[in-house]
Amino acid sequence: MKASSHSLLPRALRIFWSLLAMAMLCAAGPAHALRIKEVAAVQGVRSNQLTGYGLVVGLDGTGDQTTQMPYTTQSMQNYLQNMGITLPAGATSQLQLKNVAAVIVTAQLPAFAQPGQMIDVNVSSMGNAKSLKGGMLMVTPLRGADGEIYALAQGNLVVGGAGASSGGSKVQINHLSAGRIPQGAQVERSVPTPLHEGDSITLGLNASDFQTARRVADAINTRMGAGRATALDGRTVQVQAPTAPGARVNFIAELEELPLESMTPSAKVVINARTGSVVLNQAVTLGPCAVAHGNLSIVISSRPVISQPNPLSQGQTVVSQQSDIQINQEPGNIIQVPPSAQLTDVVRALNALGATPQDLLAILQAIKAAGALNAELEVI
């Protein structure tokens, strides 16, 4: 048995260096002018989440075990009663619905969706069904947050996987308890969108930033007239718009295509502590500092030791464990990190440390605590 801390991960380190090199090339390339549609969206124009409970039938014996999932049996009984079929007393408990599975159906109702249009749906098992492959979803009402029905879903599932089991052995590729039905739901009711209400529209920025809000307002006022747009805060910009429906749509179409001046994002380093990913944007800079980092590995090995009794001694064989513990610590040299004003210099300085991505998480946090990392550190 081996437990190691800060072990060398050459392959992960190569991947990390490659990602940083890609970021360096992107930063060194020509700046691409952003459009308003890439940093903001019209408030009120949004999709809505729909969900519903349904049954998938036609499975090849891979459905729910009804003895453990009573709601599957109850749902099928209710469906049969709606079809005019009444089961005799006591027959419900004897149903063996191996080809039926209870599922949760979800979908997104796009903005401006009208009755009769088709949308995609996702189907996920909520019981102990082994596989939904080959099944068909029965008619399932999809409801919104207000409890009203906005779409009806039905169709054959597409499951991107395969599996087989026999004699206690099992082979499975991908996930079999969830699938998708392309164009599997028909919209029955539209959601009103307040696009044409009032004499103005509000742009909501994707990220809160006062500088971005000011530049969006300036770009609109420069192109469409002074006083047309006002930055209310770091997240919203109010724009005076025509009241006629056709003119307002044309106005928004032109508004979204307006270019913005080159913007420098706030310096940020994003760390994913679960995967060891580190992402830096082009505004990150480093101050002068010195870093010492070494690798520590602990190896614990155990082997059985058997003690045999002498012949005719009526003793018992005794088995014990003998453990050996070894601690190896590699020397950590102090490396001077020079001040870095560009992303290329930051990448070069971090590469000089020779640390793995997992080690880099701790190093960056320590550099930030020392005041040498001029960026916001976000751990996700």
Rank of each mutant, 00 (worst) to 15 (best):
I306A: 09
Q314K: 08
M83D: 06
V346G: 02
V249I: 14
V319A: 12
L312G: 08
A349Y: 04
R180S: 12
A12V: 03
T67W: 07
G134W: 00
T243Q: 10
Q108L: 14
S177N: 11
G84E: 12
A40W: 01
Q49L: 13
A362P: 06
G52H: 02
S18A: 15
A352S: 13
S131N: 03
V187E: 06
G198L: 11
G332A: 11
L286V: 04
N82H: 15
A372P: 00
E256N: 15
E197Q: 15
N351M: 03
G29Y: 00
R35C: 10
G52Q: 04
N82R: 15
A375E: 10
Q342A: 07
V139E: 13
R248G: 02
Q282F: 00
F251I: 05
E378F: 01
A164D: 11
V56C: 01
L80R: 03
V337M: 11
T86A: 12
A33T: 13
V278G: 00
Q316E: 15
A12G: 05
R215Y: 05
S18P: 07
N206W: 00
G168R: 04
L176W: 03
L258P: 08
E257V: 14
L87Y: 13
T243H: 01
L97W: 02
R214W: 06
V45C: 03
H32G: 12
V100I: 13
S166A: 15
V249A: 13
T51R: 11
F16M: 12
A253C: 01
N295Y: 07
G160E: 15
S166H: 03
M69I: 13
I149D: 05
A362T: 14
I149N: 08
